[in-house]
Amino acid sequence: MKAKPLRPGLLATMNPKQSQFDALVRATSAELYRFGYWLCGNEALAHDLVQETYLRAWRSMDDLRDTKAAKAWLVTILRREHARLYERKGPTSFEQIDDLEIADFDGLSPDQAGEDSVVRRAIAALDAKYREPLLLQVLGGLTCEEIASQLGSTPAAVMTQLFRARQKLKAALGGTGEEAKVYELS
């Protein structure tokens, strides 16, 4: 069946909470899904995880005072849901990583596409203690301080984890990285 566009006249009559939620979902769900995917390593689990996250978010919409903080708030809920639903099932394996298509393939050279799959495998192979801060930073857009408070850590420890995560990914790409060498001197 063909999609029909939303009718603006009807949309205007939506209750304010629902329309705020609607806008929030449309603005943030793609990135939150990706965050969920890299957290649990499975497309179907990530889909369920994101659905449950937004349901929780809907039920505590009143807690969201500042819409600019929405992303960090959603990430917090998603991490809690992930812990509740899946963490007890043990570490996740990234079984489907080789089957993943690159989302935006247009304009990529074969070299870039090959590099992406190398990086992707390297991300999957990262220890959770390195991967999670990196995801929070790059996909969640969180600052060092925010990551530290999510993980119950310190900004300095987060800095080190972020550095190590990148170092490992760069090593997977074949370069040792001048930055890494400089840092190692310290």
Partner: peptide, 14 residues
């Protein structure tokens, strides 16, 4: 390249 690698496809109509 990190951004591209993390940008896994999102289900249609998510």
């Amino acid at each position: 390249s990190l951004d591209r690698a993390l940008a896994v496809p999102v289900p249609a109509q998510l």
